[in-house]
Design a protein around this nucleic acid. Structure first.
Length: 975
RNA sequence: GCGCGAUUAGCUCAGGGGGAGAGCACUACCUUGACACGGUAGGGGUCGUUGGUUCAAAUCCAACAUCGCGCACCA
């Protein structure tokens, strides 16, 4: 769609795959396989024997030829993760398997509610910019999760013909050959546009593929497709016949470079430093010694088109002149103009006298109408002064300004010049200063159409996320003005109005006709085309073939409205509101979508909007090159928040890439462990490794954590909080699965009685984690999943099932979480002591743990049961855990909440340093206790606070007192 | 002018009425059999200012300051 200018960096290599994909040739497919094969290792899939159900392919349609089964995949991960090497081949496989269509290659469950997204169609001239990268990452996350949840999904994709942008591109190419579009003529020019589209128009689609977007690429749409043309014509013709589309002679926003009209919202206002000039307009008949009036203007050149001077009717300064019907001599011209009175004039601004230029200012236009003034157009379509400008004819706007000022100065009619900041309109496509220009244009009467669109959001039939954006929507619709829809371009939907020059017949028609139905004379079609947004507004339903294609009713019945629309906030009214309007009107009062996601704007590191003119844009394809598509996607998702714009931070993408590497290496460890066929691995445990086996507290703990994560990510609440979800995935995988479970598992793997169950859990949790991660990082998860003995019959992770959060809740285990919390605490304490005394990781320690607290004996028993794990992770030689253990001599000390940890370090331990450290902790705890005691001594707290809070505070106070007592005891013991 | 958002560790940002958090950066140690794109242990913040509400405010409210965005513009 037409969009704000964004930095574009061409990349030739990115276009390869698309062109090939459109005609999937044999050569292309085999090339892809060869590419994938670079990483095929010859050893057999070592984990295959552990795979319970992998061979049970219940889906006969997924033949080996179209979708390589898991067995074809490499058996081990290469040591190094190279995102670029795995991404493109995987994408080809997904495409070939037909997963991007509604039935997901046959894996969709038709009994579930469908999930549909329409992409904001990028301009056919577009290059992927950061806004696209973010927006399409988010949409892909949504659609991939829905697909894995079994819902029939479709992400409708296509491009927008982008009238002005495309025409500019093609004209630019003509200019390079010394030609203009007029040299070619309309027909040949439009032909050239189509040719351009064929040659270059797929770039952005190709870039979406590089990102891994799972759009329905086999059903790509274009807003100038044959069927789409029919939709546009029906809308125009219906509205024309309803009187909602009309023609009028109005002041519109004119771009003199694009030589076309623009809609109000296609004009970008920029504050600029200009001048305010005061001009003297001589009175035809001086009165009371007054020879002239002074008017102020920021655009002196427009005085050539003045047809009056206006003052406020009650302004006492001008009463005598008004009464006398004074006229003024318009400088530099032969004309005299009247002095008129109008309420519009602000008597307090300047001299209270306003020059009136009805053909070049919207407000003056209204004045001109009310007072039946002359409308004098002084500019041609390129904003060059025309014959109405007398001797200034032929000058550009800027030249005319200089010349007019010089002439006025010479005639002593220029009174003052002041600096003046004012907002100047610019063309949103080419940044040229807009000229308010009087011309004949087509308009849509919006007020009547807007009312239902306002109601739809008020009633919650369409919801905005974040919610506050609905105010932008309401503000626009409630103050709506008529929409100028005609453009003086050649590339676009030509206005289907036909005129008979001889008898005056005129009508809007669905089908072209050449002769007048009334008199038989040849007809002339309107020369103008429609605003690109006029066609974009139909995107959600025109892409279903409405109103012409057979079967569209069924499509709309099943899959309409769509679920989510994700877009940038700057097109809430340009596009979103208009889609709601047209859908309500034409699709039986239905909204086009239920949820509108307004994603953050991607800013540069300094907080500036990225733009071509600033040159601060970042090319997403370079990011993909550097961090992988997965890294870019996850890095962007991590930065999404509901309320803030996204100040782009490449460090976060680096973190995401490192996270991908972490996943890769964790998977290498799991695969190695699972494939190790040592004796320890044989035996009765050779059952189904994909079944979790919560044997040890560590097992129960990681399964519990996994269950909580799955519940969180599956939560039905549509909060669209991508950042929080991404952070939860990151935290779980890195800080829980890798940092702790993988480390505990190393100890368990060494234990023959635990080895098999541990492998099962490693594989099981990795499998589930990959599923949960897949929507965010589709490539690396897919690649690893293929090698994993996950026991799933589905050929690809992309269509594998989303973890059943409800079923997983049976693993939630607070006692395991508490116990592992204690074990982790002991390990961390030992590491801290090692760091403090410079004891290497290899040197084993003797450790005494004194378990305290009310359940000390039971707690000690539980910890003793985990002695092996502790020894492994803590590198412990002699370990003594008991309730009431005393501190050995020469021991370093850590006082925890419910335990004391002693490490005898004869000759090493610095008793004074230990005492000082304990004293510091004592002080800290004492401060905390004081806070609690203060609260508990506060009658207000005791009488008004939540009882749970009071109890919590009391418990904490008790614990702190106990901790302090023990700290004190240890400090004393050290002396 | 009207409206919206932001202000938390050096940087980018989460969080959100009752114990200040993450990533990066920084310091020290570790080439331990998944990973140096790594591991471990650390240092670092009166949560923009001023009031108010509350037993309790970084968190809610108001005003102000600063920054950003949008809309509307008086020529």
């Amino acid at each position: 769609m037409p969009e704000s200018p964004q930095p574009a960096h061409g990349r030739d290599n990115a276009t390869d795959g698309l062109r090939a994909e459109k005609k999937p040739g044999v050569a292309r497919a085999s090339a892809a396989r060869a590419s994938a094969g670079r990483h095929v290792h010859t050893s057999k899939a070592a984990g295959a024997q552990l795979t319970a159900a992998a061979s049970a392919d219940t889906h006969s349609h997924t033949t080996a030829s179209s979708v390589p089964a898991a067995a074809d995949a490499p058996a081990a991960l290469p040591k190094t993760y190279h995102p670029r090497a795995i991404e493109s081949p995987l994408f080809t496989r997904w495409m070939q398997a037909g997963y991007f269509s509604r039935d997901a290659g046959g894996f969709a469950d038709n009994t579930l509610p469908p999930f549909t997204i329409v992409i904001p169609p990028p301009n056919v001239t577009g290059m992927l910019h950061m806004g696209h990268a973010l927006n399409n990452t988010l949409q892909d996350i949504l659609i991939r999760q829905a697909r894995m949840q079994g819902r029939p999904t479709r992400w409708i994709v296509g491009t927008d013909h982008a009238g002005i942008a495309t025409q500019n591109k093609v004209e630019q190419r003509l200019i390079e050959r010394g030609l203009t579009r007029f040299d070619l003529g309309r027909e040949a020019f439009v032909e050239a546009c189509w040719k351009w589209r064929q040659e270059f128009g797929s770039t952005i689609i190709e870039q979406l593929k590089a990102m891994g977007c799972s759009c329905d690429f086999n059903n790509e749409r274009f807003t100038l497709d044959e069927g789409y043309v029919q939709a546009v014509r029906k809308v125009f013709v219906d509205w024309y016949h309803q009187g909602l589309v009309y023609r009028g002679n109005r002041i519109i926003n004119w771009c003199p470079r694009c030589t076309t009209a623009l809609a109000d919202d296609e004009v970008v206002h920029v504050e600029e430093m200009g001048h305010l000039w005061q001009l003297r307009y001589p009175l035809v008949e001086p009165q009371d010694g007054r020879a002239y009036l002074v008017v102020a203007t920021t655009r002196p050149e427009t005085m050539l088109g003045d047809s009056a001077v206006a003052v406020h009717p009650d302004d006492p300064r001008y009463q005598p002149l008004l009464a006398a019907g004074a006229r003024l001599r318009l400088p530099l011209t032969e004309r005299t103009i009247p002095l008129i009175a109008d309420q519009y004039v602000d008597p307090h601004f300047g001299t209270g006298a306003l020059k009136v230029t009805p053909a070049h200012d919207p407000n003056d236009f209204e004045l001109g109408r009310r007072h039946e003034l002359e409308f004098i157009n002084i500019f041609d379509e390129r904003a060059v002064v025309n014959h109405n400008g007398g001797r200034f004819q032929g000058l550009s706007r800027a030249e005319a300004r200089e010349a007019v000022l010089a002439a006025l100065k010479e005639a002593d009619l220029l009174e003052t010049t002041h600096d003046h900041v004012h907002a100047v309109g610019h063309c949103y496509r080419c940044d040229t200063t807009i000229e308010p220009w009087l011309s004949e244009q087509w308009f849509v009467a919006m007020r009547e159409l807007a009312a239902p669109a306002i109601a739809a959001v008020r009633e919650g039939r369409v919801r905005f996320f974040p919610d506050r954006w609905h105010t932008v929507y309401f503000d626009w619709l409630e103050n709506i003005r008529d929409w100028c829809i005609s453009r003086q371009l050649w590339w676009g939907h030509r206005i289907p109005v036909f005129y008979c020059e001889s008898c005056g017949w005129q009508d809007a028609l669905i089908q072209d006709i050449s002769d007048c139905p009334r008199c038989g004379e040849p007809l002339r079609q309107d020369e103008d085309v429609l605003d690109t947004w006029f066609s974009s507004q139909l995107w959600p339903f025109a892409t279903y073939g409405w109103p012409a294609t057979r079967g569209f009713e069924h499509q709309l019945e099943c899959y309409y409205p769509t679920q989510a629309l994700s877009t940038a906030r700057d097109i809430i009214f340009l596009w979103v509101a208009r889609m709601v309007i047209s859908s309500l009107y034409f699709i039986d009062g239905q909204v086009p979508f239920t949820d509108v996601l307004i994603h953050p704007t991607v800013l540069d590191k300094k907080g500036n909007i990225m733009s071509k003119s600033r040159g601060n844009g970042i090319d997403p394809l370079e990011l993909i090159e550097r961090y992988g598509a997965d890294g870019m996607r996850f890095g962007l998702a991590l930065q999404v928040t509901g309320s803030q714009d996204l100040r782009f931070n490449a460090d976060t993408l680096l973190g995401a890439r490192n996270f991908a590497t972490k996943i890769w290496n964790a998977a290498r460890f799991v695969l190695q462990s699972a494939s190790d066929k040592s004796d320890a691995c044989s035996g009765p445990a050779q059952a189904t490794p994909v079944c979790p086996q919560p044997v040890t507290p560590a097992d129960r703990w990681i399964l519990s954590r996994l269950a909580r994560l799955a519940v969180f990510l599956t939560d039905e609440a549509d909060d669209y909080d991508f950042g929080t979800r991404a952070r939860a995935l990151y935290g779980f995988f890195w800080n829980e699965y890798c940092d702790w479970y993988l480390e505990y598992s190393k100890g368990q793997l060494a234990d023959t009685t635990l080895r098999y169950s541990t492998i099962a859990n490693l594989v099981y949790v990795l499998d589930k984690a990959l599923r949960l991660l897949h929507p965010y990082m589709p490539f690396i998860t897919e690649y690893i999943w293929h090698l994993l003995p996950h026991g799933d019959a589905r050929p690809h992770l992309m269509v594998a099932q989303w973890p059943d959060a409800t079923a997983l809740t049976r693993f939630i285990d607070p006692s395991a979480e508490a116990l592992i919390g204690h074990l982790n605490g002991i390990v961390a304490a030992l590491r801290s002591i090692r760091a403090r005394y410079g004891i290497g990781a290899r040197q084993e320690l003797d450790v005494v743990v004194n378990v305290c607290g009310s359940h000390a004996k039971n707690q000690a028993r539980l910890l003793i049961q985990q002695e092996q794990l502790l020894r492994h992770l803590g590198r412990i030689a002699r370990l003594c855990i008991e309730a009431g253990a005393t501190r050995p001599a020469h021991a370093a000390v850590i006082v925890g909440e419910e335990m004391e940890i002693f490490v005898p370090l004869e000759g090493l331990v610095n008793l004074d340093a230990e005492a000082a450290r304990l004293a510091k902790e004592h002080k800290r705890a004492a401060t905390e206790l004081t806070k609690r005691e203060g609260k508990l001594a506060n009658p207000g707290f005791l009488s008004k606070a939540d009882p749970i809070q009071i109890e919590k505070t009391q418990t904490e106070a008790t614990e702190l007192r106990e901790t302090l007592r023990r700290l004190q005891a240890q400090i004393e013991a050290l002396h």
